[in-house]
Computed example of a mutant assay.
Amino acid sequence: MLENIKAVIFDLDGTLVDSMWMWKSIDMEYLAAKKVSIPEDLEAFQDELEGMGFTETAKFFKERFQIEDSLEEIKETWLLMSREKYCHEVPLKPGALEFLKELKKRKISVGISSSNSRELIAEVLKAHNIEAYFDCITTCCEVPKSKPAPDVYLKTAQGLGAAPEDCLVFEDVPMGILAGKRAGMKVCAIEDAYSKKQERQKRELADWYVQDYLEVLENEAQKGACV
């Protein structure tokens, strides 16, 4: 998988950290606090949000639920609601730290392309003491179009100084996988409970599908042993 790869780019939520459950909880708490009826089919509602950037999601909420707060106020509320959970309740995906160490050992550049806010990304990396492993971070708020458009991945690759064809993307949802593929990159889909119902689609879209990063490391170790 890592053969001829010069840069690895991660999505954040559901890919690098196990956090998708948290956002579903925050959506429910936020709407309840605003005395807004929670969508009957919450799963379908969450699917609508897939791939949207942080500001784009705030705009969607404001228009869909006629929320009086400004976009900045909505985002600030979400930041406050999520900060504690991110720092104390959201773990790294199994094997993520070990995989980051392996990439550093191989001198492979590492980036993040996320729909989340830059502030929260920074806090997550700091909470897990992994800031030093990342050479470039890009959010969907910083590019013209969010996922499944390739913009955020292309911008990160540019920041890493790598050609798209030399990049490997790790993603957990179809919209993100599509973004990576449309950028001309190889994509590995990672297992996540939140997107379990989309497993078949993820397998069809991605070049590889893994349970976690321990599986990636094991496969790479086996390849090395066979050389």
Score class of each variant (00 low, 15 high):
E199G: 03
A96I: 05
L125M: 10
V216N: 01
A206H: 00
A7P: 07
E220L: 12
K181N: 02
K34Q: 15
K59G: 07
L79N: 14
M175Q: 12
A58F: 01
L92F: 08
E43N: 13
L217I: 15
V173W: 00
P174E: 04
V143H: 15
L31W: 10
K202M: 15
K107T: 10
W208K: 03
K155M: 11
V17K: 02
K93D: 07
K147G: 08
K93A: 02
L92Y: 05
K223M: 11
Y213E: 02
L120M: 10
G95E: 03
T55P: 01
D166C: 07
P39G: 11
G176F: 00
Y213N: 05
S195A: 12
I5W: 03
E98Q: 15
K101I: 09
P94S: 09
A163F: 08
A132L: 09
I108K: 03
F170E: 00
D41I: 06
F61V: 04
S114P: 07
A33H: 14
L31Q: 05
N4I: 00
V152I: 14
A193P: 05
K59T: 08
I38Y: 11
C140I: 04
L178Q: 12
G51E: 08
V152A: 08
E171S: 03
A32I: 15
W21S: 11
F65A: 05
Q201Y: 05
A7M: 10
L71R: 04
G180V: 02
L49G: 08
T156L: 06
G95V: 04
I26K: 08
D41H: 10
N219H: 12
T138M: 13
A221T: 12
R182P: 02
I177H: 01
V210H: 04
R106M: 11
E123G: 00
M52P: 09
V210R: 03
F60H: 14
K105S: 15
E191N: 09
V187Q: 02
E119Q: 09
E29P: 02
E56F: 02
K35W: 01
R64T: 15
G224S: 11
V216D: 01
E220A: 09
G161S: 02
Y30Q: 06
V90C: 13
Y213F: 15
D41S: 09
V17T: 13
S19V: 02
G51T: 05
S114G: 06
V143E: 08
F170M: 00
Q158L: 13
G159H: 08
G184F: 11
E199H: 08
E199R: 13
Y194V: 03
K34F: 10
K181F: 00
A162L: 12
M22Q: 10
K59F: 00
S117R: 01
I121T: 01
S117H: 01
K197R: 15
G51Q: 06
A183C: 06
S109K: 15
E40P: 03
K186A: 11
H128K: 13
K197M: 05
Q201T: 13
Y194W: 15
A163M: 14
T15C: 09
L2I: 09
G51C: 07
K196P: 05
F65V: 09
E29L: 14
A127N: 10
L178W: 01
G159T: 12
K105I: 00
L214G: 08
L16I: 01
V36S: 03
F60M: 04
I108N: 03
L42R: 13
R182F: 03
